[in-house]
């Protein structure tokens, strides 16, 4: 399976009903070895950080077997509003 930033993005948008997802390939040659994601979803509301990350890891279970590293930032729409650079 070839994991791409776009594939990860599509999956998170769909399965977490995310309102915003940014995925960046952070491997040196953009060789899909590591990714960094910002995920904004109302599914994170009322969930501690660990639970949010577990939710994301669950959605990407297959993909994460292939990659070396996956950085994630998980925000609720409300947190996203206040943290968004104006």
């Amino acid at each position: 399976m070839v994991v791409t930033a776009e594939l990860i993005r599509e999956k998170l948008l769909k399965e977490l009903a995310a309102v915003h997802v940014d995925v960046e390939d952070t491997s040196p040659n953009r060789c899909a070895a590591s990714f960094k994601a910002l995920i904004v979803s109302s599914r994170f509301e009322g969930k501690a950080l660990l639970q949010r990350h577990r939710l994301v890891n669950g959605v990407l279970a297959e993909e994460l077997k292939e990659v070396h590293a996956f950085e994630q930032k998980t925000l609720t729409p409300q947190q996203w509003e206040t943290q968004k650079p104006q």
Partner: peptide, 25 residues
């Protein structure tokens, strides 16, 4: 840990998280 990546951090026998979580905490 049911956690796909390394590093992993445990505090007081409880799984705290990986690098992102420790950094944010």
């Amino acid at each position: 840990s049911n956690w796909p990546t390394i590093p992993q951090v445990y505090i007081n026998s409880e799984f705290l998280g990986g690098c992102d979580i420790l950094l944010q905490m």
